[in-house]
Write a protein that binds this DNA or RNA. Structure first.
Length: 257
DNA sequence: GTCCAGGCTTCAA
DNA sequence: TTGAAGCATGGA
């Protein structure tokens, strides 16, 4: 969730679909306002049995340590369009700059500072998007918005598709490749068999699972699917968190506390 | 100044 | 099918 903000007292503000929300955790209690219990539960995957998933993917000492260090971590279920647009812009980018890009887009073209609707972005010129700092991603986002706004990419209707069909459909959208498609499937459509391999997961997996071997991102993804099973997406989230918090990029170490 | 960032598209081979 | 180049921009 690139655009959620945390204030000094641990209160997070952000959006669940069109709803602006405030959320904070106090011990085992989640306090919130701005959305219904049902939507909060769905967005934060509070309706899943975390213990059952953790034990299902807890198949080796590495993921075991990562699970221990990130107990309570959950996947989100974001609105497909916002998730898709965000990850198209994440390409060859860093999170700080990406956040700035998303905030500028929302401020200028979104209602109530929300992520802009595809109909709004479809009308914006590539030149304008580039002036907001999107760089070479500007035409991708515009083209994707046009596809969605025109109904050629029916993101809501695609919820009915099986994993492989959904994957193929998403890959037809400009700016969506092997990594972004996995992110959208996992973070928006709840397809837990997805396993996005970005630079961080790539580093972590090569270090922890393939030392001194040359493997491609695809090989890593296929390994993870076999190794962790049909809910490997949960493992990806835990490993990503472990990678970004437990080693620096120069010399990653094992995620042992 | 150099390096790098939650990659994708295009074009060879 | 696979691999490499090119792509824009700002922070470290």
């Amino acid at each position: 969730m690139f655009r959620w903000k945390r204030d000094g007292s641990g209160v997070f503000t952000g959006w669940i679909g069109p709803a602006a929300c405030r959320v904070s955790q106090r011990g085992a209690h989640l306090q919130f306002e701005g959305a219904s219990v049902r939507r909060i539960q769905r967005f934060f995957s509070l309706d899943v049995n975390l213990q059952a998933i953790a034990s299902e993917i807890d198949v080796d000492p590495i993921i075991h340590a990562a699970l221990k260090n990130h107990r309570g971590l959950r996947l989100i279920r974001q609105e497909p369009w916002e998730c898709l647009g965000s990850f198209i812009l994440s390409s060859f980018n860093n999170i700080v700059r990406l956040t700035g890009m998303l905030d500028r887009l929302a401020l200028r073209f979104g209602e109530q500072n929300r992520f802009p609707r595809p109909e709004a972005l479809a009308k914006v010129s590539e030149r304008t998007l580039r002036r907001l700092g999107l760089g070479f991603r500007a035409p991708y986002l515009k083209a994707a918005a046009e596809r969605v706004a025109a109904g050629k990419a029916d993101l809501e209707g695609w919820r009915r598709l099986e994993d492989e069909a959904l994957r193929r459909a998403l890959l037809t959208i400009p700016g969506v490749g092997e990594k972004v498609v996995e992110c959208v499937m996992l973070f928006a459509y709840g397809r837990t068999a997805a396993f996005p391999v970005d630079v961080w997961i790539g580093r972590a997996m090569r270090r922890w699972y393939f030392p001194r071997k040359k493997v491609t991102d695809r090989q890593i993804r296929e390994f993870a699917r076999e190794h962790f099973g049909p809910r490997c997406g949960w493992a990806q989230q835990v490993l990503y968190c472990a990678a970004r918090t437990s080693f620096d990029r120069a010399e990653p170490s094992a995620p042992i506390s």
